[in-house]
Amino acid sequence: MKHRNFKTVPRMIFGRGSFDQLDDVLTEERQKPDDFVVFLVDEVHKDKPLKERLPNQAQDLVIWLDVTDEPKTTYVDALTEQVQAFGKGKNPVSVVGIGGGSSLDIGKAVALLLTNPGGAASYQGWDLIKNPAVHHVGIPTISGTGAEASRTTVLTGPDKKLGMNSDHTVFDQIIMDPDLIAGVPKDQWFYTGMDCYIHNVEALNGTYINEFARAFGEKSSELCHQVFLEDHPDSDEKLMMASYMGGQSIAYSQVGACHALSYGLSYVMGYHHGIGNCIAFNALDDFYPEGVKTFRKMLDKHNITLPKNVCKDLTDAEMDKMIQVSSGMAPLWDNVYGPDWKEKVTPELLRSLYLKM
């Protein structure tokens, strides 16, 4: 049996105020006077204090990201071309992604495409990236997706929603500063945090489970309980660590039914990843009974009302597309049912689950 040799983030800084060390990190990469850095920052920070704290120099490029929609391969391609035009044949010494999961994924994707020819859509899949990325740094300003820890960058392409899954995707450096997640709107804080909680439920109940994934998943779950059921005073720090550990848990195992279904919801109906996961998870009592029960307690405690009957007005073509996207998530269904998953994951099963949402 061959074991996976998986890559983790080699360098990380954690703690309140640690964002201010970004300048030190980038100084190490800047060797020549014309070396430049690209900052890809969620535009929500454009009029916030964080803008003034960016350690950008005169020769650097700051791009404010529009993450209204889930990141598309076409958007990533356009950003890559913008960076290439700015560099006039020279690549940046570092790409810094700052924001939520979408911004971090965009940062990873642009860093990869600067060294790998062709558009992002041609790399949607597993281990299709050939060349190491430009040095890239991830700084979450909302916690839950685990994008800071993962080897994927999830993108919506012309015919599917699927990550660029590769060891080269992993950040070279992350900075986890709990100060940065203060003031996130309540619904967004909840939905993104639930992405982390759901990662753990899927990993811990999957066929891919192993002691590595279990160690991270159990600790991350415990932290999620403290944040979402106990209102712990250090909840920002705890959620940031839960997010990182949830990302580590699935790095050596896999997500499951909820994520497979949520990819379909997102592709056809445009739901953001966090809320899409919540809508899907709420229909999965048969798959994760204990996890769903606890999830509903969290919903009640934080007065979150999920959309209901979201699939009732879909056309047959839209429903068929959702089923196609979801059933294409082979490793996820393998983690749910094992190698014979195709016998279980029928269009009828997927349709019935979507109609429960």
Rank of each mutant, 00 (worst) to 15 (best):
M1W: 02
H3P: 09
P10Y: 05
R11G: 10
R11N: 15
M12K: 14
G15K: 10
R16K: 15
G17T: 12
S18Q: 15
F19S: 11
D20R: 14
D24Q: 15
V25C: 11
L26N: 13
D42T: 06
D42C: 06
D42V: 04
H45W: 13
H45E: 07
L50G: 05
E52M: 07
P55G: 07
P55C: 08
Q59M: 06
V62A: 00
I63F: 06
W64M: 05
D66Y: 09
V67S: 04
E70T: 13
K72H: 11
A85H: 09
N91P: 06
S94A: 15
G100T: 08
G100Q: 05
G101E: 04
D105M: 05
D105N: 13
V110D: 08
L112V: 14
L114A: 06
T115P: 10
G119S: 11
G125F: 07
L128N: 10
I129V: 15
K130F: 01
K130Y: 05
V134N: 05
I139Y: 10
G146Y: 03
A147R: 11
A149M: 15
A149Q: 14
A149P: 12
T152Y: 14
V154I: 15
L155K: 11
G157R: 11
P158L: 12
P158M: 09
G163A: 14
M164P: 01
Q173Y: 15
I174Y: 04
I174W: 03
P178R: 04
D179R: 01
G183L: 09
G183E: 06
P185R: 02
P185A: 01
K186C: 00
K186L: 05
Y191T: 01
M194T: 01
D195H: 00
C196S: 04
N200S: 06
N205F: 00
Y208P: 02
Y208W: 00
E211K: 14
F212W: 04
F212H: 08
F216C: 08
E222Q: 15
L223K: 04
L223F: 11
V227D: 01
E230W: 00
E230F: 00
D231G: 12
H232M: 08
K238A: 02
A242Y: 03
S243Y: 01
G246P: 06
G246Y: 02
G247I: 12
G247W: 07
Q248E: 14
I250G: 02
A251T: 14
S253R: 13
Q254E: 14
V255N: 07
G256F: 04
C258S: 14
H259R: 08
A260C: 13
A260T: 13
G264P: 03
L265Y: 00
M269Y: 00
G270H: 03
Y271L: 06
G274D: 03
G276Y: 00
N277Q: 09
F281V: 12
F281P: 03
A283P: 05
F287K: 10
G291A: 07
T294P: 02
K297Y: 03
D300G: 01
K301L: 05
N303R: 03
D316P: 04
E318Q: 15
I323D: 08
Q324M: 11
Q324W: 03
D334E: 15
V336S: 10
Y337K: 11
Y337E: 10
P339E: 12
P339L: 04
D340E: 14
T346A: 11
T346M: 12
P347I: 10
E348L: 12
E348D: 15
Y354C: 13
L355E: 14
L355C: 05
